[in-house]
């Protein structure tokens, strides 16, 4: 078992396929420039290398050379996250289960949401954010329940119903793992992964 690791699957430092930024950092490391954590521009597409159709690009960010301060700093490791098994399904937050309500009427008040959602359990937290330009409700709310069942029942009951004449959608806000991706770039077939068994997410 261990013997096979050495030759076939060379070295794969990347823990997962989604580390786009880290890939570019690797490339940047080859740059003799002493500047740390050089620049990740076009983090996602690298100028359209991944797309089936060339993307239209726009903005100074594509033209600038790496300047001082230019760069994503998210490439570093050591991000905190709550424990998760990485599987599908909703992810618990530190104190409970968070829902996203979308399609919220711009004149909705916190009370309107409270009244609708308290039926399923105590609402521990409610954020009803405003549009910074208009001052009206932006269109979404975040609502937290302590128990999974309360949250699940709220979704089952209220998703697709009307609130203040507008149809609202209620769903989990956080997920234990990556969303399924269709229609996106994959690694070349030759790029064998090490250690982890071939996970199928499709």
């Amino acid at each position: 078992m261990a013997a096979a690791v050495g030759d076939v699957e060379v070295v794969d430092f990347e823990p997962d396929e989604d580390d786009l930024m880290d890939e570019e950092v690797g490339a940047a490391d080859a740059d003799p420039s002493p500047a740390p954590a050089a620049k990740l521009r076009s983090t996602i597409a690298g100028g359209g290398s991944s797309g089936l159709v060339p993307r239209k690009t726009k903005g100074r960010g594509f033209r600038e050379e790496a300047g001082p301060g230019r760069g994503s700093h998210l490439s570093a490791r050591g991000f905190d996250s709550l424990d998760s098994d990485g599987g599908p399904g909703p992810q618990r937050s530190i104190e409970g289960w968070m829902l996203l309500v979308s399609g919220v009427h711009e004149e909705a008040q916190e009370d309107d949401l409270h009244n609708a959602f308290r039926e399923f359990g105590q609402v521990k937290n409610l954020h009803l954010n405003l549009d910074r330009r208009t001052g009206f409700v932006k269109g979404y709310a975040l609502i937290e329940y302590e128990n999974f069942e309360e949250a699940q029942t709220a979704i089952a009951t209220l998703n697709g119903t009307e609130l203040l004449t507008q149809r609202i959608f209620v769903d989990w806000a956080f997920s234990k793992g990556p969303v399924k991706r269709r229609n996106v770039r994959r690694r070349s077939p030759g790029a064998h992964r090490s250690r982890s068994p071939p996970r199928r997410r499709y």
Binding site: A76, F79, S81, L82, F169
Partner: peptide
């Protein structure tokens, strides 16, 4: 401060909508 979490497709959709 460095935090990361997976958000649901619903959150991504709302982000796109904004």
């Amino acid at each position: 401060i460095r935090k990361e979490v997976f958000v649901s497709p619903a959150v991504l959709r709302e982000c796109r909508r904004i």
